[in-house]
Amino acid sequence: MRKPQRLGFIYLSIFVALLLTVMPMPQMVKLARPDWALLVLMYWTMALPQRVSVMTAFFTGFIVDVLVGTVLGVNALAFAVVIFAVAQHHLKMRNFSVVQQSLLLGMLLALYQLLLFWLSHFLTGVYFRPQYLWPVLTGMLVWPWLFWLLRRYRRQLKIQ
């Protein structure tokens, strides 16, 4: 497979994650929806930090802002901060087991949720509710399967 087609899979996976982000769901389930786009970006940043990094995260976050209807730049900034942390420590994170990665990514997802809340609070006056942290738990639970799936395709397509 040619190199541009291989790199297209990275952007295809981000596109699918964006679709999962805006997929209609019942209200009870919607509160616990994992942050799919951020999880996929975290994987690609850990695996290929030279291909997917802060700028990709910023643009993806901006697209999430447009799709979800939040204040422009809130998700973009939060994505960029979290992906910067992943890019800085990607070599260490690769050596962790999937369970350890899941716990560490849970902390980064909590950072993301708290950044979102903090920015939204100052811009629109939103107040904190514990339900905002449900995506952290579901993201931690989804991570092993997402990691396995993306790593399998990355190795099968020889994406480097």
Rank of each mutant, 00 (worst) to 15 (best):
L18A: 08
W36N: 01
P34I: 00
L133Q: 08
L39M: 12
V29S: 01
T45R: 02
T138N: 07
V74Q: 15
L39D: 02
F9Q: 03
L48K: 15
A87F: 02
P49F: 09
L157Y: 12
R94Q: 15
T45I: 03
L67Y: 10
H89W: 05
G125R: 01
W145Q: 11
A85V: 09
R154E: 15
L111M: 14
Q5G: 06
R2C: 07
L105Q: 04
V52Y: 07
H121E: 04
L111Q: 01
V40D: 02
Q160T: 13
P26K: 02
V16Q: 04
L116T: 01
P24R: 03
L72C: 07
M107N: 06
P26T: 02
V82M: 03
L149W: 08
L39E: 01
P34H: 00
L72P: 10
K92M: 08
M55L: 14
Y127K: 12
W44H: 05
L18F: 03
N75E: 08
H90A: 02
L111K: 00
L12F: 12
T56V: 14
Q113S: 15
L141W: 12
L38G: 01
F84T: 08
A37K: 00
I14G: 06
W143A: 05
V142D: 05
T60G: 12
V68L: 13
G106Q: 07
M42R: 01
M107Q: 06
F96Y: 15
L111V: 15
V54W: 10
L133N: 06
L114C: 12
L105T: 02
H90E: 04
Q160Y: 10
V136S: 05
R6C: 06
Y43V: 07
L31V: 05
L111C: 05
Q113P: 01
Q160H: 10
A87K: 13
L150M: 13
F122C: 00
V68A: 11
K92T: 10
L133R: 06
M23C: 07
W143M: 07
L18E: 10
W36C: 02
F147H: 14
F122A: 04
V52S: 11
Q160N: 13
M1I: 11
Q131E: 12
W118Q: 04
Q160K: 09
M93P: 04
M140T: 08
V40W: 02
A32E: 01
V82Y: 03
F9E: 06
M93E: 05
S102T: 13
M93H: 04
M23Y: 04
W143S: 08
D65V: 13
P26A: 01
Y43H: 11
W148C: 13
R33Q: 07
T60P: 12
